[in-house]
Nucleic acid binder design. Structure first.
Lengths: 141, 141
DNA sequence: TTGCGTGCAAAGGTTTTGCATGGCA
DNA sequence: TGCCATGCAAAACCTTTGCACGCAA
């Protein structure tokens, strides 16, 4: 990929904003609201950028069941996300990277015993994170 | 839930069809095409039924990244899907239930080491299944 | 007979596309 | 200067909703 020929204000602002919040997800609407405060930007351009950034795997697109909308999150380029699973908390929405040998072990088990070549990068484990568990219970189903 | 007062042809046909293909997922469009061959059915009713069946956890709604559309799959009621992971092949689209101790072991590891209470039922592992691997390569990215 | 379930059509929300303009190199 | 990227508006798309009718009980 990597076909962004020109450097433009809107694009830079979008990437910078996402990059500043690597552990958060945003809807297009939220990104539009944030960015249009500072620079002139249209939603169509946002969609175009996000779609391209997703292809380049710099940004990831999620579908939130709770909010029933698409969310975007920066995942960086140097990320070794292809080699570990991701835990997504269904309460707070945060995504944690599971940098742990068990990840690799489990992937290997899947391959050996089940012939299944799991793509860790794509696979998201849903559940409730430690913090939210401690806070007691589930805010939302 | 369980509030279906009446028994109607359209509803029965939908459930029967999904039940006959427990390992496959369908878009609303596909379901509409299949069912409208046999019985009179409108899309709005399909949406209404599916939405209700999802609430009752008889059907599960997935969002397919590849096809970028919502898919529905029968999961039954007696299903112990809450206790094992699911493998989804990104080539053929099939979902396999991972009835295996490693599933539980991994879930326990997540809880013990990471304090993460994973919800297996919601968590889908993406990858390429054994069959598709043997067929060689990837039909679609 | 009663009232829920239905299909149709229209509305609603989100995402994509066409096109002329403006900005980057 | 040439061409890409942009923004606007319209279109396309999927899903929900309103409404009058039909069918199950």
């Amino acid at each position: 990929m990597q076909k962004n020929h020109y450097h433009t204000a809107g694009r830079d602002a979008l990437i910078a904003f996402l990059q500043k919040n690597p552990d958060r997800q945003f809807t297009v609407e939220e990104l539009y609201a944030q960015l249009s405060e500072r620079v002139s930007v249209g939603k169509s351009s946002l969609y175009r950028h996000l779609s391209e950034l997703c292809e380049a795997e710099i940004v990831r697109k999620f579908h939130s069941k709770e909010r029933d909308s698409n969310l975007y999150q920066y995942v960086g380029d140097e990320c070794d996300c292809k080699h570990h699973f991701h835990q997504k908390c269904t309460v707070c929405g945060r995504i944690n990277h599971l940098d742990c040998h068990a990840s690799a072990d489990f992937a290997e088990h899947l391959m050996r015993e089940h012939g299944f070549a799991v793509d860790c990068g794509q696979s998201v484990l849903y559940g409730v994170c430690a913090e939210c568990s401690e806070k007691g219970g589930r805010q939302n189903a």
